[in-house]
């Protein structure tokens, strides 16, 4: 610890309160009579945000440096194909993850 426990608690408190504030803010602002434009946003955003989160997860992948994002590409394609075929999350996700770990630890070491 470089700072005192008391100051650590203060910093943690600030981070917790700010995070909670961000999560509660939409519910506080749009408590009554949510505008149509916000309802519209609420309906189409889930599709766009999941797309954004996929990109977010893969943000550290470098296409110029070895292994050029090949483990990620193979594993993502495997997950999509398995899921389109079986529609079973408990198959798609473990298979994709094991595939990625093998590629990372054994194939592209």
């Amino acid at each position: 610890m470089t700072i005192s426990p008391a100051y650590s608690l203060i910093l943690i408190g600030i981070m917790a309160a700010t995070t909670a504030l961000l999560r509660f803010l939409p519910f506080l602002i749009f408590r009554h009579n949510t505008p149509q434009s916000i309802l519209y946003l609420g309906r189409v955003l889930p599709y766009a945000i999941i797309g954004m989160l996929v990109v977010y997860c893969l943000k550290g992948v470098s296409l110029v440096q070895s292994p050029h994002g090949i483990p990620e590409l193979i594993s993502v394609v495997l997950v999509v194909l398995l899921h389109k075929w079986k529609h079973n999350t408990l198959i798609s996700i473990p298979a994709g993850t094991i595939c990625y770990m093998v590629l990372l630890q054994v194939v592209f070491r």
């Binding site: 889930p46 599709y47 766009a48 999941i50 996929v54 990109v55 997860c57 893969l58 997950v79 996700i93």
Partner: peptide, 25 residues
């Protein structure tokens, strides 16, 4: 990552209009 890809795939199949998903990516 795989979890998000699975959800993305499910949403893609559920909704015929892919524009919101394409905008996100």
């Amino acid at each position: 990552t795989a979890l998000f890809v699975v959800i993305f795939t499910e949403q893609w199949e559920k909704e015929k209009n892919h524009l919101p998903a394409l905008v996100g990516v």
